[in-house]
Design a binder for these strands. Sequence first.
DNA 1: CCACCGGTGTGATGTAGGTCACCGGATACT
DNA 2: AGTATCCGGTGACCTACATCACACCGGTGG
Lengths: 187, 187
Amino acid sequence: MEQQLREHLEQVVPLTDEEFALALSHFSGRRFRKHQFLIQEGHPVPCAYYVVSGLLKLVHTDEAGKQHILSFAMEDWWESDFRAYHTQTPASLALECLEDTAVFCLTLPDYHRLCAALPKLERFFLHKATLGSMAAQQRILSLLTTSARQRYEQLLAQHPALVQRVPKTLLAAYLGVSRETLSRLSA
Amino acid sequence: MEQQLREHLEQVVPLTDEEFALALSHFSGRRFRKHQFLIQEGHPVPCAYYVVSGLLKLVHTDEAGKQHILSFAMEDWWESDFRAYHTQTPASLALECLEDTAVFCLTLPDYHRLCAALPKLERFFLHKATLGSMAAQQRILSLLTTSARQRYEQLLAQHPALVQRVPKTLLAAYLGVSRETLSRLSA
DNA sequence: CCACCGGTGTGATGTAGGTCACCGGATACT
DNA sequence: AGTATCCGGTGACCTACATCACACCGGTGG
C-alpha cells in the first residue's frame, strides 16, 4: 500500500527513496469498514485522505434530510471536506464508507510540514488542486447545460464500473434527480 | 496597477522588491474594451489572466446556441479556460469583457518558469487553486440542493454589487434559469 | 419459516421552471 | 428626429422532474 502511494505521487513528481520515506512519515495508514464515517457533519476534520482501496461518498444532508452526493471517492482519489479541513472549522459534509476502505491520512499540520520539507510535494498538490478544480467546473457546466438523462448517460460512459458498484439511489443523489426518475430513465 | 498585483500576491506570500520585480517580469499588462474576447471557443488559450479592473464573463455556448455562464471575473480574480490552458488544447469556453477591462497576462511557459524561479509563487497558486476548487464545490452543492429562487437570493446576498453591474439575462445564464423565470422571481 | 429491510420498479398526480409570443421603455447609432 | 437594438416584464401553455403511494424481490437474522 506504500508502493501504491509512491506510484501515485510519482505520476506527478519523481522522488528518491529518501524523499519518499520522508513523505511517508507524514502519513498514517488506516482501515475502515462499510458504513463507518471518516468525517461527520458538524465535527472537526482532522485529515485529508488518500484512498488506497475501497469506496466512499462525500455527502451533504439538507434540512429536509435529503442526501446530496458531491463525489464518490475511489482508489487513488484524495478526499475530505476541504473547506472545513483548511479552515479548521466543523464539517458541513460527511465522508462515509460504501465499502471496506483503506486510506492514508494526512493531518493539516503534517500537510504544511510536508510542503515545507519537500517543496516537490507542493507541486504535486498544486497539480491535484488544478485538476480538481477543472473537474468541478466541468460538473457545474454539466449541471447547467444537460438533462438528468444526459448526465446519467455521461456517467455511464465515464464511470461504468461505478454504476455497478453503487446502488441506484446513490447515483440519483449524485446526479441531482430523484430515485424514481433515475429508475425511469433506463427505458 | 503593478501595486495592485503586488498586494494581491502578498495577501498570500510576502515578497521582497527583487522577488516582485522578478515575478512582474513574467506578466504583461493589457487592456480590452467591452465586447472584446480574451478567449474564443475553439481557439488556443495563450494566457491566464489576473483582472486588475473591469468585468468579464466565462461562458459556454451549447449546441442550441444558449449561453451558460461559469463565472463572472471581477477585480482581483484569476480567470481563463484553465482546462484548455493547462492542456494546451482549443478552448471550450469564451472569456468576454462585459466592461472595459485591464488585466495581467501570464502565458503557460511563463507560469512554469515563474514557479521554478520563485517557489513561493507555487504556494500562491496552490492557495488560489484550493480556494477555487472549494468555491466550485460549493456551487455544485448549491445547484444540487436549491431552487432557482434560493440561488438568486444567495447571489443577491453574496454579490449585491454584481447584480447591479450585470443585466438580468446574464444573471439568469449564471444561475441556470431562463431570463423569464428570473424576471418572475422578484415577486 | 417468517419478519424485516434495502434496493428497485411503476402508476397517479403536482409543480417549478422552460418556451414562445408579445409589449414597452431606454439607449445608442446615423 | 427616427430607427434599431438591448433590456426587462408578463401571459399562455408545455414538459421534465418531484412527490406520494404501493408493490415486488432477494437477502439476513431471529
